[in-house]
């Protein structure tokens, strides 16, 4: 994957509020960073991602590269940011390849990078299969591949690892790393706090508000884990995965 590095996009959310879901969340992500969004079910992670992607209107401001998203036209938005929803449901039987190619819509359907995106998500063998006949994890990878195909410098992924097996989950994290190293900004929500520990920074949301934002070791303290998630945490040697 060779993402377009000429445009770097910072993400700034200032006082975003969606009544009943999130309130007053402010967050700033510099280009080249991977930030994990963690929090219990219903804490507002998906809402925050949708707000960041400009899909859900919110009071407060969302800025991409210091420009309010309201000032961007739809195509420019499509080129700037890619959003991956948590659940991948497809009513119609488009082929995997044609769904991934939809990522190029804002680029005049030039088809560029579609094959690389398919390969990066390990979908080459499924490229001509209809998406509505795939398993949950495969569908999730199709959506990830479509997001990659956009080559948008801002990548917003809602629980991209939820349905994936360990190998593909790890590959998604490595991919996020490569994208960020090339200058992309990646914000992803995840439930696996052990994997979250490997990221640059974490934002912990609780009941619709941002509780803390910083390096994982400062965010996932034993105290925070106990009060937010209701679990006690210990550091022990366990099963460690690596790509062969």
């Amino acid at each position: 994957m060779a993402p377009e590095t000429r445009t770097l996009i910072s993400l700034e959310i200032a006082g975003a509020t969606v009544p009943g879901r999130i309130r007053g969340i402010s967050l700033r992500l510099a280009p080249g960073s991977i930030v994990g969004l963690v929090g219990p079910n219903g804490s507002g992670k998906s809402t925050l991602l949708a707000v960041a992607a400009g899909i859900l209107p919110a009071t407060g401001a969302v800025l991409w590269a210091d420009r309010p998203i309201a000032s961007l036209d739809p195509l420019e938005r499509g080129r700037s940011a890619a959003w991956v929803p948590q659940e991948a449901r497809f009513e119609f039987g488009f082929s995997v390849r044609s769904v991934v190619a939809q990522g190029r819509f804002a680029h005049g359907d030039d088809g560029e990078g579609v094959d690389e995106a398919i390969a990066a998500m390990d979908l080459a063998g499924l490229a001509s299969r209809p998406v509505n006949r795939l398993s949950g994890g495969e569908r999730q990878r199709v959506l990830m591949a479509r997001a990659l195909a956009t080559r948008a410098p801002l990548q917003l992924w809602d629980e991209p690892l939820a349905a994936l097996d360990p190998r593909h989950a790890l590959e998604v994290l490595f991919l996020a790393r490569r994208l960020a190293d090339a200058g992309s900004t990646v914000l992803l929500s995840l439930q696996d706090l052990r994997l979250a520990h490997c990221l640059d920074a974490l934002a912990l949301v609780e009941k619709g508000a941002l509780r803390s934002f910083g390096p994982p070791s400062e965010v996932l303290t034993a105290e925070a884990l106990a009060s937010v998630f209701g679990v006690r945490a210990r550091t022990v040697p366990g099963l460690i995965f690596e790509l062969p």
């Binding site: 036209d73 739809p74 938005r77 499509g78 890619a82 959003w83 929803p85 009513e91 819509f105 804002a106």
Partner: peptide, 21 residues
């Protein structure tokens, strides 16, 4: 037609990909 392709797989997705939904 092309925009209908994207819309038929999800409104929010289509919007994020650049369709004026």
């Amino acid at each position: 037609g092309r925009q209908m392709d994207l819309l038929s797989l999800g409104e929010a997705e289509a919007q994020s990909l650049g369709v004026d939904v």
